[in-house]
Amino acid sequence: MTSIKTKSLNIIGYPIHSLENNLMGMFKHIGQVLIIYYYTLKFIFQGKIDYKETFKQSYMIGVKSFFVVSITALFTGFAMSLQISRELVLFGADTAIGGVVSLALIREIGPITAGVMVAGRVGSSIAAELTTMMITEQIDALKVMKINPIEYLVVPRYMAGILMMPILSIYAMAVGLIAGIIVAQVAANVQPATFLDSVQQTILDRDFEVHFLKSFINATIIIIFSCNIGLHTRGGAEDVGIATTRAVVWSMTGIFIANYIVTALTFIPR
C-alpha cells in the first residue's frame, strides 16, 4: 500500500519538481538579463562606449547579415505576394495587392525576418564566443585587469545591434517589396505603378514607427539574451553548443512574444 502511494507521489511529484526547476531557471535567466541590461544602459549613459569595437561589431552583426537577410526576405516576399495576389484577384481587388503586401512587410515580416536571421546568425555567434571566453578564463582575465565585461563586451555589441537592426529590417522590407512587385506582375498582372500606388495609399508614418520600435526591441532581445547566456555558462566544449542553442531559442521566442505585444499595443483600426 505504502509503495503504491510512494509511486503515485513520484509520478505526480516528478513533473511538478521538473516544472518548478524550469520555472526557477526561467526566472533566474530573466533576472540576470535585467541586471545585464541595467548595467549596459548605465555604461551607455555614462558615455563608456568603445567606438572602435562598436564599429567592428556593426560590421559583424549588420554588414555580414545582409546576404542572408536578402535571401530570406526575397523568398518571403515572393511567397506572401503569391498568396495575397491569388486571393485578392478572386475578389477583384488586385489594386489592393501592393497595400496588403507592404503593410504585412512593414508591420510584421520585415522586423521578424531580420530578427530571426540575426538571432540565428549573430545570437548564436555571440553566445558561442562569450561562452568560450568564460571557459578559457578570458572573462576572468578581464576582471583581474579591472575591466568590466559588460562594458567591454556587451555595450559595443548592443550599440551595434540597435544601430544595425533597423537598417536590416528596413532593408528586408524593401527586398520583400521588390519580390512582391515581381510576383504581383507575373501572377496577377498588376503593374508596378499600380502596386506602388497602393503601397503609398496604405502605409502611414506610424507603420514606420512600429517597424523601428520592433527592430529596436528585437536587437535588445537578441544581444542581451545571448550575452547573458554567454556570460553565465560554465563547463566545457559541450556547453558551448548548449549555450548556442539556448541563445537562439530564447532570442527567437522573445522576438515572437515581443512582436505580438507591440502589435497588440500599437494596433489602431484604420
Binding site: M133, T136, E137, Q138, D140, A141, L142, V144
Partner: peptide, 13 residues
Amino acid sequence: DISLVFQGSALLN
C-alpha cells in the same frame, strides 16, 4: 596593482 598569470594563458583571442 594586482596581476594573475593564468594556467591556460587566458589571452583574448
